[in-house]
Amino acid sequence: MKVFEPVPTSAVPPATRKRARTAGRKLQELWDSRELLWSFVVRDLKIRYKNSVLGFAWSLLTPLALMVVFTFIFTKVFVVGPRDFAILFLAGYLPWQYFANSVVNSVAVIVNNSDLIKKVYFPREFLPVATVLSQLVHLALSLAVLGVYLMFKGHNFLPYLPVLLLAMLLLTFFNMGVSMVFAAANVRFRDIQELTPVIFLLWFYGTPIFYSFEMVPAGYKTLLLLNPMTWYLDLFRRVLYFPRSPSAGLVAVAFGLALVSFGLGYGVFLRLARTFAKDV
């Protein structure tokens, strides 16, 4: 038996840097645990619709109701603004809901799963990412309903379907980045989960959703361009409202925003995730 002197409590730990895991290993890990990500998404969806008679029909009913109400209001009651205002609104509102719900539902996802975080290791980013993906399912269903309505109204957007899918993909990566930052920051500052709904309420009015970009006075347009959601909603409206091809510049900006958001968000998240088990 070897016996060692205990390290004195006054001893100072060596100032070595933490060794970063290589990107290759991280990817390997994500690939190995891909089934878990799927399980989390399924869990989110099942929990939401458990004990409800209509189940998934609920996520179709909301856009349907909105569509009926807005069509009525803007064609019979309040006949101003651009043509087909209901479609203009929904083409912006549905992606906005996707973004807002992703972040608002992600913000407390680490804190609420503290038991899991403290007991078992798994890639922590799966929690916010699964939240975003389950919201993506809702977006897809809502857009399907809107698509049927568009075809019925004679808007043939099908040639632009690939652009729509690209828009969904880019917005998904943007959402993941923002959701990860909010979820990780909320572990240190629990105020953030109270603050988030307020932020998104203000952000809602600062985004061209129930108005269009063109309706805004020139002086404020620059301000609106600083809002990433302005670009994404523009991309969705090109397909669903006009429909026409987006400019290469617009796609490039949407792509750039997704890249920056996801890259920064993931980086920040992984950095803070090191101490989640101690802080939750």
Binding site: E35, R43, I47, L116, K119
Partner: peptide
């Protein structure tokens, strides 16, 4: 011995078996 990690009360036993199992790797 992490018994029932990630069990969710609203999910069925069957769902929980698969969820818990995949959490445990």
């Amino acid at each position: 011995l992490e018994l029932g990690a990630g069990f969710h009360g609203d999910l069925s036993g069957r769902d929980n078996i698969f969820l818990n199992g995949s959490i445990l790797g």
